[in-house]
């Protein structure tokens, strides 16, 4: 069976392919490993002449899946945005593509939907991921007053690992603090806050930060 483009490659296979990038493989080895993943065949015993045919046939695997659909992120809630921030920062976004896309699509049951997404073509989800990564960068830029961390410079000398753990913990704590502030300490309102549109909450927070510069940033 010959696959002619990304349409026949599943999300699970694409994740496996991307994981190869971190391994110390030669260019030919990387190419053959990628083809082996998508076709479930072994090409390492092929002779040079047959190999050239395969390399030509699967040349497209060295390109990226197409990003030709637009995505609308306006309906994302503040809760969705927090989840997506965590997914985008805890590891490279491509490794979290399933959770990111499931959150953006607003699936109720993450576990079930994740399983489903894994077996769907990468072309159904890759554009969403790429578009969200661009959108996220725009948000970070638009609301940079909220996301800038003044303490960062002081922490520069800390051990890298210690710093990462601390940042992760403090980011989670910061989000909880924000929810706590916005719900005015009323636990019964916390859920309501997370269901608000994310743009509305970010606008509100930047207004508050402007009016009270001493207020802790994200």
């Amino acid at each position: 069976m010959t696959l002619s483009n990304w349409d026949s490659v599943t999300v699970a296979q694409y994740i496996e392919i991307k994981e190869l990038d971190s391994q110390d493989l030669t260019p030919l080895e990387l190419f053959l490993e990628k083809i082996s993943i998508i076709t479930d065949n072994d090409y390492f015993d092929l002779y040079e002449d047959k190999l050239n045919e395969i390399l030509t046939k699967y040349d497209w695997i060295n390109t990226l899946p197409p990003v030709n659909t637009k995505s609308n992120f306006k309906p994302l809630t503040f809760g969705n945005f927090i989840d997506l921030e965590n997914y985008c920062t805890e590891k490279p976004p491509i490794e979290n593509i399933v959770r990111i896309c499931a959150t953006i699509k607003g699936y109720e049951s993450l576990t079930f939907e994740c399983e489903k997404i894994l077996s769907e073509p990468i072309t159904h989800h890759y554009a969403t991921l790429e578009n969200y990564i661009k959108y996220r960068l725009q948000i970070l830029d638009t609301y940079k007053g909220l996301f800038e961390d003044n303490e960062e410079e002081e922490e520069e000398e800390e051990e890298e690992e210690e710093k990462e753990a601390k940042e992760k913990k403090s980011t989670t704590e910061n989000w909880l603090n924000i929810i706590y502030q916005l719900s005015k300490g009323d636990i019964t309102k916390a859920n309501e806050v997370t269901k608000l549109p994310h743009i509305m909450v970010l606008n509100w927070l930047s207004l508050e930060t402007k009016n009270q510069p001493s207020k802790k940033k994200l």
């Binding site: 030919l28 053959l32 390492f44 040079e48």
Partner: peptide, 13 residues
């Protein structure tokens, strides 16, 4: 005389 893919990879390495 032809080389196999795995031999080309060994050589690359």
């Amino acid at each position: 005389f032809k080389l196999k893919a795995k031999e080309l990879i060994c050589l690359e390495k």
